[in-house]
Design a protein around this nucleic acid. Sequence first.
DNA 1: TAACTTGTTTAAAC
DNA 2: TGTTTAAACAAGTT
Length: 299
Amino acid sequence: MGWAGSTEGRASGYAEGGGRMPELPEVEIMSRNLARWTVGRRLQQLDLRDEALDSGGVVAWSSQAEGATVRRVWRRGKYTVLEPDGGLPSLVLHFRMTGKVVAAEPSTRSSARLVIRLSPVQGRPNCVVFDDSRRLGNAWAQPTHSLDRWFEVSRKLGPEPWPGVQDTAFWAQQLGRIRSPIKVALMRQDRVAGLGNIAASEILWRAGVSPTLRACALSAEQWAAVARAVPAFIDDTIERESGDEIAYVNSRGGSARGVSSPFFVYRCAGRPCPRCGEPIARFKQSGRSTFWCASCQAG
DNA sequence: TAACTTGTTTAAAC
DNA sequence: TGTTTAAACAAGTT
């Protein structure tokens, strides 16, 4: 089910090393970074430079929350939550394709949409920026006490797949009755929150399960393989990408072509499968590129 | 230049 | 009716 060019490898036009997107592991890293930079410090000045970032309540919040201290920062699915103390609403961020939080002066960023100045502390950054070159990200201000319900009801998020190893029964329960292909099912945020297009291909390759198999047709052994592959992928990705700034689309993982893609199959069409050497193939499912090894993922 | 990249929402199809 | 797929959307890269 490929198309012309799907086995052409480096001639495919994809940039080597690019293509990381903010999925669960990247959002986890950014949430940890934001916690490290802000928890326990006062929000001295909030500068919403792009009101289009506001998907609800952020304009008001940015004046309301000034002076408050950050209590904690946490992740839910692909969202990051900055929670002030004093019963104030929380700031919820979604990064879409190119959004990221960085510790930097806004003058060094061409697309700073929100600038958070913190009470100065020796040895810690005084400014945090929501940087988003394509301006597709979103932000909301939501009452802190009802965030769990908001994520469930308004954002329609299913349970978290990580941390804590979810067992075979969890995956069979959440996805086992979906008739669409397992690759598509893995991306359904209302069933399991946080897995995107990259994760879906990578997890199925690790599990040795075909992306075309209907979710409702997976065997117990295949669900067990998925259950093992998910934390393996997430842990590996967090370990590999941890750092002060997530490298997204514009980055080149290595300067030379062909240098270490961070993924085993994603955007690796035409290259040999790291496990068996057969060429990785690419095709579309529900409008999204799927990458897989037909030899390793026969089941 | 047109096509492609993403997650989410909405509309249409099954 | 419920489930699934496709299209549209944002904007930047190739």
